[in-house]
């Protein structure tokens, strides 16, 4: 499957890898936003998750410990944000920006002693039989376990949101916290849960970068993927399936840029690296032109603090 030195199978297989941190962080942001909380701290939570997971792995030599610690670290960052915005009702945009700035600094500080440390990445699985299928096998069935886990998390988020009562309550809180409160649901508590879960997923997304691909720690490793995750949720008009599709689209085009550069295609590298941003936004905007659907999916209370009143 090669055209002029460009291997489509390798590219598509790498697309899933490139998209995975965005899938995880994007789904996390989706959960928070669906309850009406805009958390712009995703970049910071991913960075702290990435560095914490990396440190935990280096110290314990356990991948599982690394991923678990990254989720706890992401959730801890998110709890700070939830405390500010939900308990003290601070402005969500300002608090989120502050969280990202804090996360950038904290992760750089924590990671300094570990910078440049070489670690073993997560091994690829070879699923028996399926991985031998031509073309599809290498793309879909020779990935690392986290790729499959992230897809499973995506399926779980979709099922949770649209087919469980707890998911219904989550959507109701994002739509009208006042009505939900009047019916006896604990709006602030539900928002805390969503923000914390979102933080854990963002932390895991960060750890995917530090532990799997490219499995190293350097300052600023996440390189803006947290912001892309936030943008994906909005441009995917708050639909988890589209968040995932957007994540893979972005990952795929980023990877395509690398490949083309490697092949020496005469396009300026700046143009190639801006391509994924442009392509993702254009595609998602075209998909979400339907205003009715947008209205049905957009959490109406987004960024609005909730004050319980008698």
């Amino acid at each position: 499957m090669e055209i002029a030195g460009f291997n489509i199978v390798t590219w598509l297989a790498a697309t899933l890898v490139m998209g995975t941190p965005l899938v995880l962080a994007g789904l996390g942001e989706f959960l928070a936003e669906k309850t009406g909380v805009l958390n712009l701290g995703t970049e910071g939570m991913m960075l702290v998750g990435a560095v914490s997971g990396f440190i935990a792995f280096v110290e314990t030599d356990s991948q599982i410990a690394g991923f678990a610690v990254s989720m706890l670290a992401g959730a801890a960052m998110a709890s700070l944000f939830a405390l500010l915005t939900q308990t003290f009702r601070a402005n969500q945009v300002a608090s989120g920006l502050a969280l990202t700035i804090f996360g950038v600094g904290l992760s750089a500080f924590m990671g300094r002693p570990y910078e440049g440390e070489g670690i073993q990445g997560l091994a690829k699985l070879h699923i028996p039989l399926l991985s031998d299928i031509p073309v599809l096998g290498p793309i879909l069935f020779q990935q690392d376990p986290m790729v499959y886990l992230s897809i499973a998390i995506g399926a779980a988020v979709i099922y949770f949101t649209y087919h469980t009562r707890a998911g219904l309550v989550m959507r109701a809180v994002g739509e009208s916290p006042e009505s939900a409160h009047a019916m006896g649901y604990r709006v602030i508590g539900i928002r805390y849960l969503a923000v914390l879960s979102g933080g854990a997923l963002a932390g895991l997304g960060g750890a995917y970068m530090s532990l799997v691909e490219p499995h190293l720690w350097v300052e600023g490793l996440v390189a803006g993927r947290g912001w892309i995750a936030v943008a994906l949720v909005v441009f995917a008009s708050w639909r988890p399936g589209r968040v995932m599709a957007g994540a893979y689209l972005f990952g795929g085009i980023t990877r395509l840029g690398f490949e083309l550069q490697g092949l020496g295609v005469p396009i300026p590298s700046q143009a190639l690296s801006s391509l994924p941003y442009i392509a993702t936004i254009v595609v998602l905007v075209i998909l979400s032109r339907d205003r009715t659907k947008l209205r049905l999916n957009r959490p109406a209370s987004l960024t609005k603090p909730f004050f319980a009143t008698g």
Binding site: R165, L168, V169, R171, A172, E175, S176, E178, S179, A180, A182, M183, Y185, R295, L296, N297, A300
Partner: peptide, 20 residues
């Protein structure tokens, strides 16, 4: 009215019922 506009009638009613 204390209804959730973007949810369906059944979803709105389910939110208000005790038998979970």
């Amino acid at each position: 009215f204390s209804l959730f506009e973007t949810l369906t009638i059944a979803e709105n009613i389910a939110l208000g019922l005790e038998d979970v």
